[in-house]
Computed example of a mutant assay.
Amino acid sequence: MGKRIVPAALIALLVILHGQLWFGRGSVPNVSLLVRKLDEQQLSNAQAARANERVAAEIHDLREGLEIVEEKARSELGMVKANEIYVQIAK
């Protein structure tokens, strides 16, 4: 009878560990889901970083140069310089 207890205990331990591998907190499907979420978040972070860089570059241009201010005034507000004629071509 003593010879059967050790293998039975080892098999029970193996079943428990195998169950944790497939159904527990650190299971294979759960880890796969977390990896997929991590990839999506990293993509989102990269897009946000690119947007932040564009905004930072625009802020730098606005602080340092007047060309961007003039370009924005012309394109968004329709402003023109003195002695300049504004011509709009409709397509």
Rank of each mutant, 00 (worst) to 15 (best):
S32G: 10
L62I: 03
A9I: 08
R50Q: 15
G2N: 03
K72H: 04
N83L: 12
K3I: 06
N45H: 11
N52K: 12
L66N: 14
G2E: 05
I59G: 03
P7H: 05
I89M: 03
P29G: 03
D39I: 09
L10V: 01
L33Q: 10
V15L: 11
H60S: 11
M79R: 10
V80P: 00
A12P: 02
L62G: 01
P29N: 06
G2P: 01
E70P: 00
M1P: 03
I89P: 00
E67R: 11
A82T: 08
L14R: 14
K81H: 09
Q42S: 15
E84K: 01
G24I: 00
V6T: 12
V31I: 15
A56P: 00
A9R: 14
A57Q: 08
H18F: 15
A82M: 03
F23N: 13
A57Y: 05
N45Y: 08
N52R: 12
D39P: 01
D61C: 00
I5N: 01
R25D: 11
M1S: 13
S44W: 12
E53Q: 14
L38C: 04
S27F: 05
V15G: 03
L13T: 11
V15E: 08
G24L: 05
L13N: 07
M1E: 04
K72N: 01
G24Q: 02
E40K: 07
I85Q: 01
V15K: 02
I85P: 00
P29T: 01
R4T: 14
R63K: 15
R63A: 09
E58K: 14
G2K: 06
V87W: 03
A56K: 08
L43Y: 06
H60R: 10
V28A: 09
